[in-house]
């Protein structure tokens, strides 16, 4: 089927060909949503959804962040995730993950 429709897409002006096929999929307008690949939607430090900017960034939103997400997510080796802003303030006080108490080290950053 997908083989045929591909051929069909190439000659979709020739009615004779298309009439032989019952349905030809011409076009697909898809919609998808992206979010951070996290276990928990909420940042345990500021208790705001990680998809939203952290509370401090929201408070400062008056000037900067023109729709773009500057407030990214960070994953630790323990696989727990937080706002990068929240975690960088947290580690100044305490170098352990707030959720599992393991020593904090960054596994990856959101981009």
């Amino acid at each position: 089927m997908s083989e045929n429709s591909r051929m069909d897409e190439n000659d979709n002006d020739k009615k004779e060909v298309s009439q032989e096929k019952m349905f030809t999929l011409k076009k697909w307008n898809a919609v998808a949503m992206w979010s951070w690949d996290v276990e928990c939607d909420t940042c345990a430090i500021c208790r705001v959804q990680v998809m939203d900017a952290c509370l401090r960034c929201q408070a400062e939103s008056k000037k900067d962040f023109y729709g773009k997400q500057d407030c990214v997510v960070v994953w630790g080796e323990c696989n727990h995730s937080f706002h990068y802003c929240c975690m960088s303030l947290w580690v100044k006080q305490n170098n352990r993950c707030p959720l599992c108490q393991q020593e904090w080290s960054i596994q990856r950053m959101g981009k």
């Binding site: 019952m22 307008n29 898809a30 992206w34 979010s35 951070w36 690949d37 990856r108 950053m109 981009k111």
Partner: peptide
């Protein structure tokens, strides 16, 4: 991109289909 996941919102997707089983051809 890093650390992102995609969720497909099929209820919002649209397709154009050519119908070939009828007397005329329709899109």
């Amino acid at each position: 991109f890093n650390g992102r996941k995609l969720t497909w919102l099929h209820h919002l997707c649209q397709a154009e289909l050519r119908l070939g089983h009828l007397k005329k051809s329709y899109v």
